[in-house]
């Protein structure tokens, strides 16, 4: 039982971090219609900033710079590239982001080399033990922070003018524009939010129990894609809930691999996608997706 609860806690805390990344996908997609293939390298850029600055200026200041830096990077990508596409449509935008990803990732790989840069967080390799369940402190902090961030996002979208403008633009950009919502502003806000969330996720994904900042960190954004799709592409709540589902299912598949051997080895990698395809077979618009998105 303790074992089950440990894996469950592992999965939930990991799932909350996946949720941070998946929400970034959702916000960029709803605000500018872009499938952001460069999300992973934005995440890595933020984490790299933190790791390389934490020595000289301390962890907390570095974390602030990293989060702001990733947000600015997102805004710049949107303003300089996405808005200047020769023809704006989701297909070309997605490929544009692939190009951006190649450039960013190549440069970061060159800078990091084969080092694993320490993120220098104050929680180090500490762990918290409650009733026989041991969880890394970083994961507990991550879970707490993610819940706070999700609360703030709710407040932003439900209670502030800027957030309502973003939602309106996402739901119907033409009507929103007629009502005075500036799509350039909501787009920039979306990219900034997504970049900041990615950097926060990056900090925790580079903290213990993970080793630090290495180029492979950029791949972690791929792990959030099933969560995004499962949640329904355009639903922030869906992304958070699906993040949790994917996190838990993955942790249990790995934890009980010995018992699930008949399904083949290396189950942890395929299970998120298997869950995603199964859900889409039943609900093509995902768990929380708007029906409009797929209406025939």
């Amino acid at each position: 039982m303790t074992y089950f609860l440990t894996q469950l806690a592992n999965g939930l805390s990991y799932g909350l971090i996946l949720g941070l990344i998946a929400v970034g996908f959702v916000i960029v997609f709803t605000s500018t219609g872009v499938l952001n293939f460069a999300h992973g390298s934005v995440l890595l850029s933020g984490a790299y900033l933190v790791a390389s600055l934490q020595g000289p200026i301390g962890f907390w200041a570095a974390a602030a710079v990293g989060v702001v830096g990733a947000a600015v990077l997102g805004v710049l990508i949107n303003a300089l590239l996405v808005r200047n596409l020769a023809e704006a449509n989701p297909g070309t935008a997605a490929i544009l982001m692939l190009g951006v990803d190649i450039v960013l990732l190549t440069e970061l790989t060159r800078r990091i080399g084969n080092n694993v840069l320490s993120i220098g967080a104050p929680w180090g390799a500490d762990v918290v033990s409650v009733g026989g369940i041991t969880l890394p402190t970083s994961r507990v902090v991550a879970a707490g922070l993610a819940i706070v961030v999700f609360g703030l996002l709710w407040f932003l979208f439900a209670r502030t003018g800027a957030g309502i403008a973003m939602r309106a633009a996402a739901a119907d950009s033409d009507t929103a524009a007629m009502m005075g919502v500036r799509p350039s502003r909501t787009g920039a806000a979306g990219w900034a939010l997504a970049g900041a969330l990615a950097a926060v996720a990056g900090i925790f994904l580079a903290s213990f129990p993970a080793p630090g900042v290495a180029p492979t960190l950029a791949l972690s954004s791929f792990a959030a894609i099933p969560a995004w799709v499962l949640g329904g592409f355009d639903s922030v709540v869906g992304a958070i809930v699906s993040g949790l589902i994917i996190g838990v299912v993955t942790a249990l598949a790995v934890g009980y691999e010995a018992e699930l051997h008949f399904l083949g080895r290396g189950l942890g990698e395929v299970v998120p996608y298997a869950v995603m395809i199964l859900v889409l077979l039943v609900r093509p618009s995902g768990l929380f997706g708007r029906k409009e998105a797929v209406r025939v």
């Binding site: 894996q7 080793p211 792990a223 942790a251 790995v254 934890g255 691999e257 290396g266 942890g268 990698e269």
Partner: peptide, 17 residues
Amino acid sequence: PQEITPKDTDMSAQASA
């Protein structure tokens, strides 16, 4: 045996197992 891929950098689940 515990199979992983280069993408997995968090070994919590494997360690617990």
